[in-house]
Design a binder for these strands. Structure first.
Lengths: 355, 355
DNA sequence: GGCAGAAGCGTAAACGCTTACGTAATTTTT
DNA sequence: AAAAATTACGTAAGCGTTTACGCTTCTGCC
């Protein structure tokens, strides 16, 4: 019942532990005969090396950390980062690694240089840092301490770090292009914190699309401090109080778009007849809004998979130059933009509350 | 830069590593003087024991595994279990533990007794097994191997295991009681797989409520093999084809309720005017449906916290008798049941698409 | 003042694995 | 056929902790 250890295998086969270890790890210095016998027995008893033992001698834990700011975690929020983590888990499992989840609280300031128990305890070989609002000082400290890192949905300027992003600019470009193609002239933008890479890039895509079409941005471009349903709601109300009302509303993410839907409905404006509303992310709720939300899908699991791949590659070869990877997006046309003629790509269960 | 190890502390203080270890672990056999100096220095350099080293000598990893069936994970599904995991993470972090996420695939049958790499590698002290459709053989094998376990949203009859469940029967009782109290006579039930504890208990609560009120169950009680939007949709269509149509529809979970909303809408029935629809779970999407969905809220993070607590307690004292814990639910009255008079408890951002 | 017991501390082994080094046997080279 | 190089294996040290055991020094007691 007690699992076999290398020592036991060595004993049963009448060889030394060193030989067994070499055989198991494909190292030279073992005869074909002995090697075969070792591998056979190992397979038979489903031998797996003891994690801590191996870790102690190799200084490798075969484990990655997935770090996310506690605030962006669920509790009513869309589980965007959980989807990313799921992608990470699948990818690393395929390569024999594990993931430890850790959500960091607000910097408490009790420690001069912020750090993570995970790291101090040497429990991880590398970290995936997800989300735009992780403490800069923390990231820098980890990087300078030599911890292999990959950033997801975030960048750190002036620093050679691996970064995985969704192609937000391209997605926004496509979205706004789509609206323009359907005759919208007055497209307002509900933005988020400009220091977040994703929201900044989406804003850039918005402006670029308009410029490319020779149009001007809608007079009032809002930049909210948060990207929640509430902020989308209040921003839309402020927008509607203006003299000229937009014909389309591009929210920087789906949560804000949902807030916009609510504000419009309360003001008696019909969506999409009076004003079109589109979002970004394709969160789970987007297909259940009324009307179902046209949006730009982000492949969240894919982001996780790619980030994990980058990190594992870097661990295998620490000299790999850092790189920035963009994961493509996809336009999801539902009813909230009124562009029924556009090609509709929908999964079977979507649009449960078709209007 | 290199983190200090016990050896270094011992050297700096001119004592032995054993003494340092004893001081750090609050063990007797250390003078007050030396102890103080050790603790001071340790605090100063933010010493944290090396995970693998400690793990190797104590056979404790300070790590828990969170296991979930791959199929129930996101990719379009509601991240129910991710919320649970989040609760787990918060709870264990407070007690200095870590969580490793692992989603298990379908049993591939290549191994006579199913097991987990996590366990064979001795990476975890215990496991939280989430979801009703984990392989029975796996659970039993782990249990018999002496691995501390806690089940969430699942039970294993005939086995003394710690179990954490939401109080589904009570929730269903309250929900159906609420409908009855508002005059509904014909309440249909859209059920799920009866071997799942949660769906079975909800069905039981439904019948119990009706029996308590002296009513009979609606002639056709449906039990679907899946609890998806699609199955809710098709089950509702079948129901509507019957001679007598219910006045209220109680779906065993929110996904099915969403499917029901779609089917009703397609058939031209108004919700809640013609037929009330209620669900269970309070998934993220429930507040964005049209109309917003009345449902029974499950405290998913709390489930995770409680499960983690049970497991940690058991690790601290392996003799703890196994126990079954029920986490209460909460009726969330929104618009889909038409019972506007009931007390409405809503968070601020809810009901974004108020009808 | 002598002795038992306790307290404070060091020594060394153990956990399970990898790996540098040494040695004997085998193969290759001349 | 002798020297040199290669191969196959064992020995032992090391990774960072904890802990059983043993030695000294103190304390208290008669």
């Amino acid at each position: 019942m007690m699992p076999m250890r290398i020592k036991d295998i060595a004993e049963r086969l009448g060889v030394s532990v060193a030989t067994v270890s070499r055989a198991l790890n494909d190292k030279p210095g073992v005869g074909d005969n002995v090697r075969r016998r070792v591998l056979e027995l190992a397979a038979e008893v489903a031998f797996t090396p003891h994690g801590a033992g191996r870790g102690l001698s190799t200084a490798r834990t075969q484990t990655l950390g997935f770090i996310v700011r506690r605030k962006v975690f669920p509790a009513g929020r869309d589980p965007f980062y959980l989807h990313i983590m799921h992608g990470v888990e699948e990818a690393v499992a395929e390569r024999g690694y594990h993931v430890i989840l850790s959500s960091v609280g607000d910097p408490d300031g009790t420690r001069p240089t912020p750090d993570l128990p995970l790291v101090r305890e040497n429990r991880v070989d590398g970290l995936i840092l997800a989300g735009p609002d992780l403490d800069r000082a923390l990231i820098l400290a980890l990087h300078q301490a030599g911890m292999p890192l990959v950033l997801v949905d975030n960048i750190l300027r002036q620093t050679a770090l691996d970064v995985v992003l969704s192609d937000d600019r391209e997605g926004a470009l496509a979205m706004v292009g789509h609206l323009l193609g359907h005759g919208h002239e007055q497209i307002a933008f509900l933005g988020g914190p400009p220091q977040w890479i994703s929201t900044a890039e989406r804003a850039a895509g918005y402006h670029e699309a308009l410029a490319g079409a020779g149009k001007r941005a809608f007079a009032t471009v809002v930049h909210e401090a948060e990207t929640t349903v509430e902020s989308g709601y209040s921003a839309t109300r402020r927008l509607l109080a203006q003299a000229v009302v937009p014909t389309a509303l591009f929210a920087v993410n789906d949560s804000m778009a949902i807030g916009a839907l609510r504000a419009l409905r309360e003001q008696g404006r019909r969506v999409p007849a009076d004003v079109a509303v589109v979002g970004f992310d394709d969160i789970d709720a987007a297909q259940h809004t009324h009307p179902p939300l046209t949006t730009v899908r982000i492949f969240k699991e894919r982001l996780g998979r790619v980030a994990a791949g980058r990190l594992l590659d870097r661990l295998a070869d620490p000299a790999t130059p850092s790189q920035r990877t963009y994961v493509g997006t996809e336009l999801i046309i539902r009813q909230s933009c009124g562009c029924v003629l556009a090609p509709v790509r929908e999964e079977v269960t979507a649009g449960s509350t078709l209007a």
